[in-house]
């Protein structure tokens, strides 16, 4: 227990001393409005009067104690009693950008990804999540945020759009500019721009672990400005891991130039992983991989947390006030 404004205590003590001195100063004019009476002992020596006087004095003492306690407790409360505790906040320093290819063939996979993250977001603590969709151009639906309710709201909107609910097609507006379709490299590069620039001064690493969840079938039609490989290079430069989910892996062979193989290569080049989404372990696999990146979840520096604890003095003040009111009621002529 410490006091923030401890200077109030001596000030209050001085004020109380001055007030007490003024109050206890013998008042020479006290008898001015009273009338002189002889033989007052004939009244004051009566046992009944003595008993009443003793009761009166007891209530006076009670009132004085209540008054002193009220003043003390309010001064204590005014001096802001605080409890200082040191905590080491465990931080979940993850930034996750969902990077979804919204070309026609991907809608069911996108819906699954969005669905998974809408669920995951419920348990997030400190993570930041962002959503970028792309087809021929990329649209940032919402930037990295820890406003999970907002994120969930947006993810649900996205899911409705991917499911093709009526009236939601506007969600995808702006992702198609006619220069082609599924320009993966451009999309990934745009997603990478969602991460704030800057690195930690000491380690040279970004202060928060970065990962991109990329859902695409890697079927490019058109000419992207940037190839997937170039985008993967940028991701590696910026210490971003790309976790690729491919719902259409089975359609092609295992050659190195197949879209799935290229995607796997790009993802693993950046330090991420590659999953075929239609396999049952897809969701939990993503989770596991992303949890691993949490290894960098730093322990935050020890912080002193100052929390106000006015409950005790204020409770005492309330009690004293009630006692004073009761005493006043008894003392009132």
């Amino acid at each position: 227990m410490e006091l923030i404004f401890w200077g109030l205590i001596p000030l209050a003590a001085i004020a109380a001393a001055v007030a007490g001195r003024l109050a206890l100063r013998p008042d020479r004019k006290a008898n001015a409005r009273r009338r002189p009476a002889a033989h007052t002992d004939r009244l004051t020596m009566l046992p009944e009067y003595q008993a009443a006087l003793r009761r009166h004095r007891r209530w006076l003492v009670a009132a004085a104690i209540a008054c002193a306690s009220l003043l003390t407790s309010t001064v204590l409360a005014a001096a802001r009693p605080v409890e200082v505790t040191t905590i080491r906040p465990e931080q979940h320093n993850r930034d996750i950008v969902l990077c979804l290819d919204v070309s026609g063939s991907m809608s069911s996979a996108d819906a699954a990804v969005v669905d998974v993250f809408a669920r995951l977001a419920e348990d997030f603590q400190g993570e930041r999540i962002g959503l970028t969709i792309f087809d021929s151009t990329a649209i940032q639906v919402f930037p990295l945020t820890d406003d999970y309710s907002y994120a969930q709201e947006q993810l649900k909107l996205a899911r409705d759009a991917f499911d093709g609910k009526p009236g939601t097609s506007g969600f995808l507006d702006g992702t198609w500019s006619g220069r082609g379709s599924s320009l993966i490299g451009d999309g990934v590069a745009s997603c990478l721009n969602s991460f704030p620039p800057g690195t930690d001064q000491e380690t040279g690493n970004p202060p928060r672990s970065r990962s991109v969840v990329l859902a695409t079938d890697n079927l490019v039609s058109g000419k992207p400005i940037m190839t997937l490989q170039e985008a993967a290079g940028i991701a590696k430069n910026r210490a971003v891991r790309v976790y690729a989910l491919n719902p259409g892996d089975l359609d092609y062979g295992t050659g190195a130039d197949q879209p799935g193989a290229q995607l796997r290569e790009a993802a693993e080049y950046s330090g991420g992983a590659y999953y075929a989404l239609d396999s049952p372990e897809a969701v939990s696999g993503i989770l596991t991989a992303v949890q691993e990146t949490e290894a960098t979840a730093l322990q935050g520096a020890a912080r002193a947390v100052v929390s106000d604890r006015p409950d005790l003095p204020l409770g005492l003040a309330l009690f004293s006030g009630l006692a004073l009111a009761a005493a006043y009621r008894r003392l009132r002529p």
């Binding site: 002189p36 002889a38 009067y49």
Partner: peptide
């Protein structure tokens, strides 16, 4: 009435009296 004693100027607590 409020009274004080002529003997020692002490006042009586009138509502008790």
């Amino acid at each position: 009435g409020d009274w004080y004693s002529v003997d020692d100027s002490s006042s009586l607590v009138s509502h008790l009296a």
